[in-house]
Amino acid sequence: MAENLSKLATESDSNYLDLDKHSVETILRQINAEDKTVPYSVEKVIPQIEKLVGQIVSRMEKGGRLFYIGAGTSGRLGVVDASECPPTYGVPHDWVIGLIAGGDGAIRKAVENAEDDEQQAWLDMKAYDIDQNDVVIGIAASGRTPYVIGGLRDANAHGVLTGCIVCNEGSAIAQVAQYPIEVVVGPEYVTGSTRMKSGTAQKLVLNMISTAVMIRLGRVRGNKMVDMALSNHKLVLRAIRMVKEATGVSEEKASELLDQHGSVRAAVDAFHASI
C-alpha cells in the first residue's frame, strides 16, 4: 500500500492558488509573507534547541564531535553549517562533520535513491570512527527519510546521543531521536517544495546550534570571532580592526601582531602579556 504523504504538513497544499497566473511582484510578496512566519515557528522550539545544545557542549568539552546527517536540501544545509565552522571559529575540520546521502557528489547533483538506504548513514559515520562521545543530528524536513532514520537508530544502538531537526509533528525521525526538534512551518508556497520555508527553518536552527555551541566552547570573545581563519583580504582587515579595538595599538602594529601570532586571540593575548 502506498504511503499517504498528504497528511504531512510539509506536503499539504499551498495556501496560494494559480501561482502561474500571478505577476512577479505578487509572487515575491507572497513568498516573503510566508518566509516571515518561519522565525516564529523556530521561537516555539527554543527550549528543545537549548536542551540539545547543552548535550552537545558537554560532549564536545570531552573531545566529542558533532555529526549532521541528511539527504537532499537537508543534507546540504548540514554540510554548509559544518563547513563554515572551521573558518569562522578556527576549529579543526573534524569537530563538526556534515554527511549527505549519496556522498559529497550529492551536494551538487542528486544521487538517485541514496536517501532510501537505512544502513548507509551508519557506514558513513563509521568511516570517521564515531564513538559515544559524539552527537548525531538527523536533518529531514519530512521526518521520514530512511537514511536519517537508520543513522539515528544505529547511533542509538551504539550509545551515541542523537537529535533531529524536522518540520512535521510526530514523525518517525523525531520518535527515534533522543532530543527531537520539530519546527512546523506549515504548507510551502509551492506545494511540497521543502527547500523553501522548511529549509529556512532548518538553516536558522543549525545557525543557532553551531553558534551557541561554539560560544559555549570559548570560540568567541565578547562578540568577536577571535579564532577565525585569516583566509582572505577582507578577513585580515577585520582582524586588524579587532586587534586595534582590543589593544589600542595602531593599524600597523595590529597588522604586525597578527603576522607574528596568526590569530586575533593570540595577537591580543600576546600584547597584553607584554605590558
Rank of each mutant, 00 (worst) to 15 (best):
V249Q: 07
V135H: 10
S6A: 11
A9N: 14
D131F: 00
F271G: 00
D129E: 14
L19R: 09
A267V: 13
A155R: 04
Q30S: 12
G78Y: 05
V166A: 04
P39I: 09
A121D: 08
L99M: 13
E11I: 01
M214E: 03
Y147I: 07
A201R: 03
T145K: 09
E50M: 13
N32S: 15
V205I: 15
Y16K: 00
H158W: 05
I275D: 05
A141D: 05
G222D: 14
E251D: 08
G143C: 12
Q55C: 04
K253W: 03
A229E: 11
R76M: 03
V166T: 15
R153T: 14
E118M: 11
C167G: 11
W95D: 02
D104W: 09
A212W: 04
M242V: 02
P87Q: 10
R195H: 08
P39T: 05
S274M: 10
A157P: 04
V57D: 01
V136W: 06
H272Q: 10
E256P: 00
D154N: 13
E61N: 11
L77R: 04
L235K: 08
P187I: 11
V24D: 08
G163A: 13
T194C: 12
A270W: 08
A270I: 12
A140L: 06
D154F: 10
D227K: 04
G186Y: 13
E115W: 13
L99Y: 04
R241N: 10
R216N: 14
S14M: 04
S210A: 08
L161Q: 06
A101R: 01
V79S: 01
V220R: 02
I181P: 06
A101P: 01
L257V: 14
S255V: 00
S193R: 07
I97Y: 02
T162M: 13
A239I: 02
H158R: 02
A140C: 11
V136E: 05
S193P: 10
L77P: 01
G143S: 07
L217A: 03
E252F: 05
E188S: 07
K197Q: 03
L161Y: 02
R76V: 07
S74A: 15
Y147N: 08
D154W: 01
Q178I: 07
V136A: 04
H93R: 15
D154R: 12
A33S: 15
T73G: 08
K234Q: 14
C85A: 15
A141K: 10
I209G: 00
W95S: 06
A239W: 03
E25M: 12
S6N: 09
G70S: 09
L237F: 01
R241A: 15
Q48N: 15
A254I: 11
R238Q: 09
G138M: 13
A267H: 09
T162C: 11
D131S: 14
V136H: 10
A140Q: 02
D104F: 15
D18P: 00
S74I: 08
H22I: 02
A127D: 15
